[in-house]
């Protein structure tokens, strides 16, 4: 379980998140919904340590999660696929993936994972020697997800995986999200496409101006008047 209590965080002296309480049960998919500027991306960045928190606690499986830096959070098993993807664009698909396994360097099964992920993402296998900057938007998103999976995270945070992508590619990516979830990885997905998010998630939260305003199962959120009026 990833448990967040009373989390406040922001940029400089300005808090963007105010007292967030959120639970991500192990093995589940949790959707975070909300309009632009609600603080969704800030929440994920605060969890992994890309920004500091001003108050609150984050626990991972009962132990405090230090979020001093993203590399330390990844050691604890929480990986972020950022909205901007943050790929190494001059480096090849292969090198991006290998770097995704940086914390597992030297482990015998890393090569197995590399091949397995190229099977999961066959478009990446076709372009394995190409620099990441030559990939299409959808392929770059797949590479960002595959790279994060190389570290075998127990929690995968996805920030707007469908942003700017064609519907067919979005479908492909969310099929992969379902497959990753079925294999046991817990997932937090931020998505503006509410239908898509609630299709894949078991539960969710709605954020507005840095606070959680609604929480419930996917079915409850889908049938909520508030969600229907604002997003569906």
């Amino acid at each position: 379980m990833l448990r967040i209590r009373d989390l406040s965080a922001g940029y400089g002296h300005k808090n963007v998140l105010n007292g967030i309480d959120l639970d991500v049960p192990a093995g589940s998919v949790v959707a975070i919904l909300g309009a632009n500027g609600a603080g969704k991306s800030t929440l994920l960045k605060a969890i992994v340590g890309l920004i500091g928190r001003s108050s609150g606690t984050i626990e991972l499986d009962g132990k405090p999660l230090t979020n001093e830096s993203a590399d330390r959070t990844l050691k604890s098993g929480v990986a972020l696929v950022a909205e901007q993807r943050e790929l190494f664009k001059s480096m090849s698909v292969a090198d991006n993936l290998l770097l995704g396994g940086y914390l597992r360097r030297g482990q015998a099964d890393m090569r197995e994972d590399f091949e397995r992920l190229l099977d999961v993402f066959p478009r990446l296998r076709e372009r394995v020697r190409q620099p990441a900057r030559t990939l299409s938007g959808g392929e770059q998103q797949m590479l960002a997800i595959a790279r994060a999976l190389m570290s075998r995270p127990s929690y995968l945070l996805l920030d707007e995986p469908s942003l700017g992508l064609a519907p067919r590619i979005v479908e492909e990516i969310f099929d992969i999200v379902r497959r990753i979830s079925a294999e046991g990885t817990s997932i937090v997905v931020i998505e503006q496409n509410v239908n898509l998010a609630l299709d894949v998630a078991q539960s969710g939260y709605v954020m507005e101006t840095g606070s959680i305003t609604l929480a419930g199962t996917a079915a409850e959120l889908r049938s909520s008047d508030t969600v229907q009026a604002a997003y569906l």
Partner: peptide, 24 residues
């Protein structure tokens, strides 16, 4: 070497490097 690639990665994108576990 993975260490050399990690250095180049951190030079190119320090956020991305941090996200893959490199102590920038």
């Amino acid at each position: 070497t993975i260490y050399g690639k990690a250095i180049l990665a951190a030079c190119e994108n320090s956020t991305g490097a941090s996200l893959v576990g490199v102590h920038v």
